[in-house]
Simulated assay, not measured.
Amino acid sequence: MNPSSSGWINKFGHLVKKESIHFPNFDSLYQELKRNGFIYGIHLDICSFIDVEHELTEDEIAKINLLTALYFTFTLEKGETDFDLFVNTVFNYYQSLDVAKISFLNKILSGKQTESQLEKLLDSRIYLGGTAFNRAFGNSLTNSLLYVDILIFQIYLQGSPNIMRHAQLLEYVTINIAYHALNSKETKKADDKLIQLLDSSLTYVDPDKANFDGTYRDLLKYNFSKYAKDYFLDMACLTIWEDKSLDYTESEYIFGLGSDLEKSKNEVESVLKYTTEFFQKNSSKVAYLNDKNLAFQFYEGMLKNVSKLILRNSKRLKKELTESKELVSLLSKSAAKELNPEEKKKVQKQLLDIFKTIPSLAIFMLPGGAVLLPIFIKLIPKLLPSAFDDNRIEEN
């Protein structure tokens, strides 16, 4: 399955129908999403029943986990596995939240099928801003509050009125818990990055214009579900984790919040321990915890995204390359020794001619795109055989 290509939602539906082991309850679903990082807004892994051919990027993992969480919330809440009904329900749900505004151009490109439109919609939930060009260079922002969508969807499926107000309330309480958890710390520098990320991920509420009666702690008395309370506690523990210790002020805050959320001291301690172990294990994979300089981050992001473009088009590229014996010869030569200026110019011209035939590689044609050619040449050995359509469904 390739979540960066059309048809991936249909492929997901095909895979989930074949999956005999489903989540027996919301607790098991929540814990799986937590292990994969989705609850923390960190996208590390997906459920094992989903077969992917290529290594997934962070945004692709986020899309798959969002759809997985929505689907199993639907099946658990409604006791229904009809995938077409699920797709229509999710699309209507996002429409009711006024986030299903798909541009006229995208409607033309994706057709009238709800699945195609939902693919565009989920893209909009992952990418909060920026052009396709910026994304290709690693400057996209992945929504770190996606689990709020799942909590709201659960309320929607229960037939609750005015879900927009509930969505605003969930985001408002979440961001306030993060702010207050940060303010309970003696050192705040590294956590500021997390707060900025959460703040930029808000979709339904503007904290400066929110109109709720009472403080956020008063709002905790609202009839939130157990899973919303679990999420609030996880977000608080996430915020105070960074310095890997719990001082008196932090302890006072986190256990006081736990009490407000009707959690026992043992439950709070268990969540703190889990959070610590999770981030000790995965801290190197969490972007906002890494203090890499901007130039390195830029190159790293560029390498990841160009690699994805190359590998996802490997079959087409192999076909084009095999038809250009001179180019293959020069590329092979470049792996052993430096090409002369004339040869480099010839390689560049022939590669750009090939990229013109593959729309998704149009980034190479943009001004400055030629600087990516060394990365392409580096990736040539990885051009292994792959299915032309990663989302094709094999019929038995």
Rank of each mutant, 00 (worst) to 15 (best):
L198H: 07
R165F: 14
F72W: 15
K11H: 14
L109E: 06
S140P: 00
P341R: 04
H22T: 06
Y147R: 06
D247P: 00
L145P: 01
R35F: 13
E326G: 01
K120S: 09
D82P: 05
E242C: 10
E269K: 07
N293K: 09
D390T: 00
L15H: 06
Y127M: 10
G13N: 06
T142I: 13
K189M: 14
L29W: 07
S270C: 05
V90L: 08
N139G: 09
Y288R: 15
N92I: 02
D59G: 04
L56E: 04
N313Y: 06
E323C: 10
L272Y: 09
M164A: 14
D243R: 09
L383P: 14
H166E: 13
Y40N: 05
N391I: 02
D230S: 11
K11G: 05
K63V: 07
E277H: 08
T57S: 06
F23M: 02
P381D: 00
L67V: 12
S386W: 00
N25Y: 02
G7P: 08
G130M: 01
K263N: 09
A167Y: 03
L339G: 03
L373W: 09
Q168G: 10
K244F: 02
N106P: 01
K34D: 01
L233A: 10
P385N: 11
K337L: 15
